[in-house]
Amino acid sequence: MANALSQQTQIGDALSQKNRMRLGRLFIYGPLGVMAILYLMPLWVMVVTSLKPLDEIYGGSFIGLPQTVTLDAWRAAWSQACIGTECTGLKPYFVNSLLMVIPAVVLSTAIGAINGYILTKWRFPGANFVFGLLLFGCFLPYQAILIPMARTLGLLGLAGSIPGLIFVHVAYGICFTTLFFRNYFVSLPDELTKAAMVDGAGFFRIFWSVILPTSIPIIVVSCIWQFTQIWNDFLFGVSFTSGGNSPITVALNNIVNVTTGRKQYNVDMAAAMIAAIPTLLVYIVAGRYFVRGLTAGAVKG
């Protein structure tokens, strides 16, 4: 009897514990779910707005699905919308951004890789100081260099041009890429370089045959980070380019800030989506590496 009773209370305990667990889970999943909806809402609004005809938008549909789906706004944003006086759509600016981002990413990653290699495997007196100098460059408020950079680009004959913008992005990108590669190479054992030296390999041979093949993950991190940063940049674009040489972010801002006539919100949203898609794609495909880039400078391994 006593035995059965205790068994019963045990079952009761287990049940209530299970319920408590469920309640606890509710407190975990509830807020997480609400937050997820809040985070996805702007993207949702952008997408559905870009697919609606303008009349439907002015008719009061904001968050709901479009009654008639149309790609007109996307077409307009891509090839017809007016940026300043030119009504070419975002297409040429999208191309500008591509022309800028690809060389800038490749160059800054390559330079960062070799810098990181030197700062970890070929340490020379003052190497730490050099690293400190580069590191502060990551946290530079770019307003502090806008005026001299504008003057310098003018003197070099690069003012307002895409090569000029590439130069700017590489110069300040080196700071980040060097940080990435240095922190990665620090964890590779020094004995690896020593073994290669005893095997007869020199400075470049060790880099090329031994170090670089091991650094695919960090190369991906660096490329993604640089791609996102440079594609999304606005300050350098708006300060150092004008007219037809602008990157896409500048063009997008121009489209959106046009104040004449009936505001075409659906075109605005389509344009924003077009500007966002490359980095979103990269994020979806390689988000893991993107997060590593984000946290690289922040949390000690």
């Binding site: 690896l192 073994a195 031994v210």
Partner: peptide, 12 residues
């Protein structure tokens, strides 16, 4: 020729 504590084999 040298043999290292961590072996230092080229991982790739």
């Amino acid at each position: 020729a040298m043999v290292f504590q961590s072996y230092a084999l080229y991982p790739t």
